[in-house]
Write a protein that binds this DNA or RNA. Structure first.
Lengths: 239, 239
DNA sequence: CGCAATCTTGAATCATTTCAACATAAGTGG
DNA sequence: CCACTTATGTTGAAATGATTCAAGATTGCG
């Protein structure tokens, strides 16, 4: 059940049998959520963290005029709001994009982990730092890349993140987003997403059709996006 | 010496005398750095973290064409690369913007803290999550705010962060940046920074002259920027 | 004083947005 | 199963915010 989380953690560090047990024990409950539900709102006091077992979620912030900026996408295996453990309250909303299965992890369980499992604590801390690294790379996209490169970069990132949890093929993956969802990730209008996707398609780099991303030329796509997977910290580092 | 760090930590949580002692003990060395030095490069294996005691620093990433995106500014009291403790390597560069005094904290000291001081560990973990929250807010600026609002928002953020460590007056603060530095923070060209600063000045909101930010109308500036300090987590939360 | 960095402004250009129309796909109820 | 509605995708043309290029003004520094 927490296999995808374990795959993600073990990609970077060793997790002992006891640590694995502590993690399994930490998930006290599971739940199903339907698509397009904002189930955590900014400012709300939280007492548990959400482990995404299957489905797609996003963190976002809205502006007064209704514009929305998605700050991160979450795929199966991600701890969608592990940071609420130390923050207690979030500065953003958290919503499902597809139907999702989640595991609930009470903050007391995490406190216990910090008291008894220093290494596992560092591994979890690492995961929140990985989210921060993803935020940084999105800052670069939003600040410096043009529309097509932003989309290309996002497609590259998701290919790698989904591969880690066994949810991507060599040439692409399912991605149940609309062009409007994409526009909220990359900070452009839906209309311009449409035009930019057309460009990527015409350049033979990538295609987004029927809720699936197809990497037509992965190397070329990565070049166009200036994608360097370093920020995803794929090599083991043994904290 | 680590007073500003302590002020920052105590703003959000209680730090016991022992914990304070553990922190003091963790800083094994201090150093002076001159301005405009990139002293940590992406990919470099790190064995210590950098505590900024005085001065101004930034994290940034460069693109092939030479464009630079600053992903966060650091002020006195910030742990500029606490995340290197779990990441081991950074995905970005770290550079001084002014002459800086830094404290060096070996990662073994931090490992010790995770083994003996669970609460202090959570407090430090919180700090890296706070950096992530700042990244998120910058994503919103870069993705959705126009040029003037991005600058306005940055000025508001720094006012609050500098107040916490006693380095801002009620109406503004010293900020030793050039307009080009600002442009690398907010993702626009230096020329457009200049024009946008003019707008803010003409609207009576804020002024940036002679390396000093003056908030002419703080409430108005915050309104223009849609600044909500929630993401800076200013209230105590007792982890 | 004089050079170099920084700031300022104007005018032309460009990427993206806006507005609008139409096409396609998906979902609902009769 | 079709008619109808709604969400999503596509394209064109005009408008806009930001960039680029260029020149001149100001400031800081050896």
């Amino acid at each position: 059940m927490i296999d995808r989380l374990l795959a993600k953690l073990r990609r970077r560090d060793e997790i002992s049998a006891e640590e694995e047990e502590a993690l399994r024990d930490a998930v006290t409950e599971t739940a199903e959520l339907r698509a397009d539900v904002t189930f955590i709102r900014r400012g709300q006091r939280l007492h548990q963290s959400t482990l995404l077992l299957s489905g797609l979620m996003c963190r976002y912030k809205d502006l007064r005029n209704g514009e929305r900026q998605v700050t991160e996408l979450h795929v199966a295996g991600d701890f969608a709001d592990l940071h609420s453990f130390t923050l207690k309250t979030l500065d953003h909303e958290l919503m499902t994009l597809t139907p999702c299965t989640i595991g609930l992890v009470p903050h007391e369980k995490l406190t216990r982990i910090t008291e008894r499992f220093p290494h596992l604590t560092r591994v979890l801390w690492f995961q929140t730092n990985l989210d921060a690294a993803i935020h940084r790379e999105w800052e670069v996209s939003l600040g410096r890349r043009d529309a097509a490169a932003r989309l290309a970069h996002l497609f590259c990132e998701l290919q790698v993140r989904l591969e880690i949890v066994g949810m991507a093929e060599a040439d692409g993956y399912d991605l149940a987003l609309t062009q409007t969802d994409l526009s909220e990730c990359v900070g452009i209008t839906p209309v311009h997403v449409n035009r930019s996707l057309k460009l990527l398609r015409e350049d033979g780099l990538a295609e987004f059709r029927e809720r699936r991303v197809t990497l037509l030329d992965r190397a070329g796509l990565e070049r166009a996006a200036e994608f360097d997977p370093g920020y995803l910290y794929l090599e083991p580092r043994l904290a």
